[in-house]
């Protein structure tokens, strides 16, 4: 089951500098929300707060009915962060300790990202794209209710990036999981996002709330320093449900 995410008054300060917020957001269940912005604007901090890696100074995050366990959130980092001493399949099983259907879940996740043949390899034997696919499989294997992706394709070559983007959309169709993806790539935002939130900062604030139907020029305009988009940051709650994209991939 996909969950909606409510963020109210979220703020984070490092030392004396406020890097995020205060931020109010409502992310619809079963959609891909892309947060795009320049480096250092606070978008990763927002995701880290959502994933429990940073403790916000103020505000609240409510996911679904508030009963979500940490294990129900999948997190894909910018780098694969595979445990170098574990094989691919054991890396994918990292979040499944003691799970009764562990082997099935691992096989399923590996099949989704197309890494069945690499199950017994060590991370050092993988290419960058394969390692990131393994990381994606690790996040998927526990069948999370919410998947957070922090620039997961930014370090990859264009071919691997496109392939992984397709895998992600395949996943999305498969599970209809709520996803939040951070990126600084406009094409990626328009390809993947149902909804595209443009962030500027610090302190990180949503300055435009776009959809995948918007043009790249519109997105570029919103990304310019001081750029503003028509719908405000809180307008997401009122937006109609974005239909699942029907593009041929």
């Amino acid at each position: 089951m996909a969950h909606e995410v409510h963020i109210a008054g979220l703020a984070k300060t490092y030392g004396s500098q406020r890097v995020l917020g205060p931020l109010d957001l409502h992310l619809e269940a079963g959609t891909i929300t892309v947060v795009i912005g320049r480096s250092g604007c606070g978008k990763s901090t927002l995701l880290r707060c959502l994933g429990g890696l940073e403790k916000p100074d103020a505000g609240s995050i409510r996911i679904g009915a508030g009963q979500l366990r940490r294990e129900d959130i999948g997190y894909v980092f910018q780098e694969p962060r595979l445990m170098p001493w574990l094989t691919v399949s054991r890396n994918v099983a990292f979040g499944l300790r003691g799970h009764p259907a562990r082997d099935d879940r691992v096989a399923e996740a590996l099949a989704i990202v197309g890494l069945q043949q690499a199950a017994s390899l060590l991370p050092k034997q993988l290419s960058g794209g394969m390692a990131q696919r393994a990381a994606l499989a690790r996040a998927l294997a526990p069948k999370p209710e919410l998947i957070l992706l922090d620039e997961p394709f930014s370090a990859l070559d264009p071919f691997s990036r496109e392939s992984l983007q397709q895998h992600l959309l395949h996943l999305y169709r498969h599970y209809r999981t709520t996803m939040v993806l951070i990126t600084h790539d406009m094409d990626e935002a328009l390809t993947l996002g149902d909804r595209i939130l443009v962030m500027q900062g610090p302190p990180g604030k949503i300055v435009a709330d776009l959809s995948r139907h918007d043009t790249k020029a519109r997105l570029r305009e919103a990304l310019e320093p001081g750029g503003r988009g028509p719908p405000g940051p809180q307008a997401g709650a009122e937006r109609p449900q974005t239909p699942l994209r029907a593009r041929a991939l």
């Binding site: 994933g51 429990g52 890696l53 366990r69 940490r70 294990e71 959130i73 997190y75 980092f77 780098e79 962060r81 445990m83 170098p84 001493w85 990292f94 979040g95 526990p142």
Partner: peptide, 25 residues
């Protein structure tokens, strides 16, 4: 620290992070 964060996002306790991540690393 980046490997330890993988343990955190998977809900590993401090002891489990020590056993599953820090000691092998």
């Amino acid at each position: 620290r980046k490997l330890l964060e993988v343990g955190v996002v998977h809900g590993y306790s401090r002891l489990r992070r020590l056993i599953a991540i820090q000691l092998p690393a």
